[in-house]
Design a protein around this nucleic acid. Structure first.
Lengths: 139, 139
DNA sequence: ACGTTACTTTACGTAAACGTCAAGGTAAAG
DNA sequence: CTTTACCTTGACGTTTACGTAAAGTAACGT
């Protein structure tokens, strides 16, 4: 009985405004219980919001997030639907793998720059005056 | 001399419209050579566009992409700037690592659903009639 | 009864990232 | 010289994802 929250609590917990949460409801991404005219949120709604937030962090549009949530919720009984469902899953997977590759590349570049900087900082701290052409490779 | 392109060529190569490329120029993300009033793009502009596209695939705003490109281009000479620069690098890194975690989670979930589907498909194909409660674990 | 608090709907506003004309320049080809 | 292809600069339109009032309601404390 303790696992339910008002919209303001949820908003605070997820670091968004109540407007945002209502907007997601308008879009059909969540559908909380109604007690009178008030919205009452349950754990499943929180799970939904977690999925939404993760999707947003990964740059997906709300429509895409909607589609992904549908994928999680779906329970395809017909074989033809199952095949189609599997295809969709694999598409998302491919997209995510691509994103992961992009991230790896970006991380590699950042790591290079980071080490470059650290070296520079060490050099400057150990020798505040003469720059001294050393054997530090630059590329 | 062969390494230069018109805006239409570039647009075709990157799968965007010329409007998009000009928009990025307006935003200061790229600044091609001008021959007369025409834009002429060189390899470095392609590199920029690659970075932009990667940023977009990862869900960054053009402003953020701008900042990331600045990070790549910057050559901080002052120690104070260097420290600040390093901080920015590490912030980006943290963000990217977070995104990577998100992706791993999403991939895990998809993999589970995928295997679930494959099992269902196999069951249905080997036994089109009786569902027959088998020893296939479901969770 | 009255005010406060927390919520509700309705509706107009806005920033980002382009799309979509409109109107024209220019260089080579016919 | 005109057509054609390709480019240019505006400038207004559109979608997404909310922000921001405005005005109303429902329970709760005093």
């Amino acid at each position: 009985m303790t696992e339910q929250w008002g919209i303001a609590e949820l908003a605070a917990e997820f670091g968004v405004t109540t407007r945002t949460i209502r907007f997601y409801e308008d879009k059909g991404l969540i559908s909380p219980e109604r007690r009178g005219q008030r919205r009452v949120y349950h754990p499943r709604d929180k799970v939904r919001l977690q999925l939404i937030m993760r999707g947003k962090r990964l740059g997906f549009s709300l429509d895409e997030i909607q589609a992904m949530i549908d994928l999680y919720d779906a329970d395809p009984s017909e074989v033809s639907q199952l095949q189609l469902f599997l295809d969709k899953l694999r598409q998302r997977k491919a997209q995510l793998l691509g994103q992961r590759d992009d991230i790896e590349m970006a991380l590699d570049e950042i790591d290079r720059r980071e080490k470059q900087c650290e070296n520079l900082l060490n050099d400057k701290q150990s020798e505040p005056r003469q720059p001294k052409a050393g054997q530090q490779a630059s590329g």
